[in-house]
Design a protein around this nucleic acid. Structure first.
Length: 474
RNA sequence: GUUCCCUUCGUCUAGAGGCCUAGGACACGUCCCUUUCACGGAUGUAACACGGGUUCGAAUCCCGUAGGGAACGCCA
């Protein structure tokens, strides 16, 4: 039997990071067994669903490299079918009309709660003659839940879960306006789509028993379930707004690569021995639902950073340069060229594209520019002023041979002759003048990439600045 | 309140009764490398929630306790 899975998001906003992981687990498992991975958009909540959100979810999934089989199913288009199944259940005597008003239901719940019982419907209309129904009340259709015994689900992640049927409510299948409830729509759709494995967040574990009632009442095969724990924030509480980023796109904005996010998300709650870094291909080769942990796991951005840094090193230089340029909204050809040339040194030290962007500033500005506090402090130095002149003269003489090793040799010569071999005396002012900051990629290489013209401009600007701002005497 | 789920270093995890003096990764500490910041290399600190069983033997099986989470809508 071919495995069929589905990912069923509600299009009420961005793709949540937790949903992204659920989608990833579904996808990985399905590719592992060579099944079909379907998409279903649960847009029955018309008030909250938007077409933009639908597009955003598709876009985010694609960004993560998650592809799906066939056309996505729009749940809203299937309402007639949902109603049909509800009426079938009615005809089979497995469901019934209920004429209670929302006010009456509220009262029942309050009463049950007061008695220390689970709040639920008291089954008033379950065996009552519909002929006695109050006039003018549009009924809902409720399922007849089993009255005694236990229900059991063998969950692929959680193991055997047993719940007393006394806990099950005669839940509503079809609302008084004829629209299906979520619980009902999910079951009908999962069945009609031929879903064999339902992989979803464990907040649905309890719902499984309600949904199972419908499958069984219809005589349908109940799919296999795998309830994966939700992701929690660093403090162990369920991921929410106060934890910061929640949307997959927010992680993109924070500078994470999709392949790194996928690797991290997959490793969160699932493991294959001690493997930490793996490709999607390896993951699909290894992934088993039974290897997913039953306990919830916390999002750790430090580890994400580490994994991202790994993938940054592997990433193509031009691709990374494009990301930096996209961030600052630039299409400057010179900047792109410099970035690509400097990328090997840049990407080896940055954990995220945001850091990459910061470090790349050397290549993205033109003299004269501002010096940050530390750079300004360095340039205020008396020796630095002298050094700057030596550097300027030495590099001006380099001419066509403006290569990193030539530049470095020239700077070392100055250090040897003037500063007793103390390289920092030359390098640090040079760095300050070239970058405006005291951290940068290897500065001689950066100078080569910048080219002699731009380097001389920056040195000149630094000399002007030093002249204007005076210097400290030591 | 009722029902259900969860619990190994700070974090993610390995672990299927003896391979466990509990392994790996991130983070943290120290050292090395080094013109800055990083990378990298080496090394160290650090955990089986608690209490009972079962067993020759338990992180692993069972029961209880504690703590955390979820569900209980004419929301999804």
């Amino acid at each position: 039997m071919t495995v069929v899975t589905r990912f069923a998001p509600s299009p009420t906003g961005m793709l949540h990071i937790g949903s992204a992981r659920t989608a990833l687990f579904n996808w990985c498992y399905t590719r592992h067994v060579g099944g079909k991975f379907l998409l279903r958009v649960e847009d029955t909540d018309k008030a909250r669903s938007t077409p933009e959100a639908v597009e955003a979810i598709f876009r985010d999934l694609k960004w993560l490299g998650i592809d799906w089989d066939g056309e996505p199913v729009m749940q809203s288009a299937r309402e007639a079918r949902h109603a049909e199944v509800a009426r079938e259940l009615l005809a089979m005597g497995k469901a019934y009309y209920c004429y209670c008003t929302p006010e009456e239901l509220d009262a029942m719940r309050a009463e049950a709660l007061a008695k220390g019982e689970q709040p639920r419907y008291n089954r008033f209309w379950r065996d009552r003659d519909p002929a006695t129904a109050p006039a003018g009340v549009k009924p809902v259709i409720r399922i007849k839940a089993p009255l005694d015994g236990d229900s059991v689900v063998n969950d692929l992640v959680q193991g055997e879960v047993r719940v007393p049927n006394s806990q099950l409510d005669d839940m509503i299948l079809l609302r008084s306006d004829g629209t299906p409830t979520y619980m009902h729509a999910v079951v009908v759709d999962d069945h009609d789509m031929g879903v064999t494995h339902v992989v979803r967040g464990d907040d649905h574990l309890n719902n499984t028993f309600r949904q199972k009632m419908i499958f069984e009442a219809m005589g349908w095969t109940v799919p296999q379930f795998a309830h994966i724990p939700l992701i929690h924030g660093a403090d162990g509480a369920k991921l929410s707004k106060r934890h910061g980023a929640q949307g997959a796109m927010e992680f993109k904005e924070m500078g994470y690569l999709p392949e790194a996010l996928c690797n991290y998300l997959l490793r969160l709650g699932w493991s294959h021995g001690d493997d930490e870094i793996f490709t999607k291909e390896q993951a699909t080769q290894w992934f088993e639902l039974t290897d997913v942990n039953a306990g919830p796991s916390r999002l750790d951005t430090k580890k994400l950073d580490h994994i991202n840094a790994h993938y940054m090193k592997l990433a193509d230089d031009a691709r990374l340069a494009g990301m930096v340029l996209e961030r600052i909204g630039s299409t400057d050809a010179t900047h792109r060229e410099r970035l690509i040339k400097g990328m090997p040194d840049l990407k080896s030290r940055a954990a995220t594209v945001v850091q990459l962007n910061t470090d790349a500033q050397v290549y993205l500005k033109d003299a004269p520019f501002e010096y940050d506090e530390k750079a300004a402090h360095t340039l205020h130095d008396h020796d630095a002023h002298h050094a700057m002149h030596y550097i300027y003269d030495a590099l001006a003489r380099l001419g066509a041979d403006f290569k990193a090793d030539q530049i470095e040799a020239a700077l070392k010569a100055i250090a040897d002759e003037k500063y007793a071999g103390k390289l920092a005396k030359v390098m640090m002012p040079f760095r300050a003048a070239l970058c405006g900051t005291m951290t940068s990629p290897p500065i001689a290489k950066a100078a080569e990439i910048l080219g002699q013209g731009e380097v001389m401009n920056r040195l000149k600007a630094a000399l002007h600045w030093m002249h204007d701002h005076g210097h400290h005497h030591h």
